[in-house]
């Protein structure tokens, strides 16, 4: 899997998180993490990619857990947040 594909898969999983707050955090964490490590070379880059794969599995499990035990929906996920 290329780094781009890893980024795509992480973002895809992050967008599926049920809870608004965890979802926002996951998307933000993936984007900032890749930006931060963008300039890495050689072994450091390989280690970061490896860590990304581990985190992808973690995120997949969290998405499933979030769907199994959904909490109350955030007001931010309401179709009309103003009057919710």
């Amino acid at each position: 899997m290329t780094a781009q594909a890893l980024y795509r898969n992480l973002l895809r999983q992050a967008k599926q998180v049920t809870d608004y707050n965890f979802r926002s955090y996951s998307i933000r964490r993936v984007k900032t993490g890749f930006r931060k490590n963008q300039q890495l070379q050689g072994d450091e880059a390989a280690a970061a990619i490896q860590d990304g794969h581990v985190q992808l599995e973690v995120l997949k499990r969290q998405v499933i857990l979030g769907k199994l035990y959904p909490g109350a929906a955030s007001v931010m996920d309401s179709p009309n947040p103003i009057i919710a």
Partner: peptide, 8 residues
């Protein structure tokens, strides 16, 4: 990374 986001 931006290209990935555009395609998404």
């Amino acid at each position: 990374l931006d290209v990935v986001e555009v395609v998404m």
